[in-house]
């Protein structure tokens, strides 16, 4: 995974609330067995509208996306994060995110950045001028050319993973002895829990 430390770029001012993952990437694009190329289907319904923010040259090459409450709600499809990554988006700013989407985003090197609605509204206004925003993950700040400066909070483990581009599976596999000890305790105390499909009568 590509590390994320500091991102400077234009931001797409989407601004809508409850943007679900069906809107981010419709189901017909999910018939792929690869993670690549999903940007082509991203926000398909919105992009079919004339004058939409995604096709506005003012936001060309944007690395950030700004949305309303509950971004990424609905389906757990990680294709939503893959589609955003394919569009070149590294940071999504919103007042809140769905739990599943924010986890998927981090695992793909995308920062789900939570700010109060007032701050999001201000950043939307700056973004609409086609100006660049800067996100500094180490310092946990978002700044604008107008000297706005907003601090944001982030879970320390997620920050660590993003800054270092860490592979969580590798981290967990290093703990395999602890997992084996847990499994041994379960197998002794509650053997039925460990049978799964092998229990078929």
């Amino acid at each position: 995974m590509q590390p994320l430390t500091r991102v400077t770029g234009r931001a797409i001012p989407l601004g809508l609330k409850n943007v679900d993952t069906d809107v981010i990437i419709p189901a017909r694009w999910l018939k792929t067995i690869s993670r690549e190329g999903l940007g082509a289907g991203a926000f398909e319904a919105i992009r079919s509208e004339p004058g939409n923010v995604f096709d506005n040259p003012l936001y060309a090459g944007a690395k950030l996306l700004i949305a309303g409450d509950n971004f990424g709600c609905g389906s757990s499809r990680e294709h939503a994060a893959w589609a955003l990554a394919d569009l070149g988006i590294r940071v999504v700013i919103a007042p809140s995110f769905s739990d599943i989407f924010s986890g998927n985003a981090v695992k793909n090197g995308i920062l789900p950045l939570v700010l109060e609605q007032d701050a999001v509204d201000r950043l939307l206004a700056v973004a609409r001028e086609g100006l660049e925003l800067t996100v500094d993950l180490e310092a946990q700040t978002v700044t604008t050319p107008y000297q706005d400066r907003f601090a944001f909070a982030i879970d320390p483990f997620r920050k660590h993973c993003l800054l270092n581009g860490l592979d969580e599976i590798g981290l967990t596999m290093a703990r395999s002895e602890a997992i084996a000890a847990f499994e041994a305790r379960r197998a002794a105390a509650q053997p039925w829990l460990m049978r799964g499909t092998a229990a078929t009568s």
């Binding site: 757990s76 599943i100 986890g103 998927n104 596999m173 499994e183």
Partner: peptide, 14 residues
């Protein structure tokens, strides 16, 4: 529900 990276994580580590 989980994403695909987590599916892989569960398969590899339970």
């Amino acid at each position: 529900g989980i994403g695909t990276s987590e599916v892989e994580h569960v398969l590899a580590t339970q």
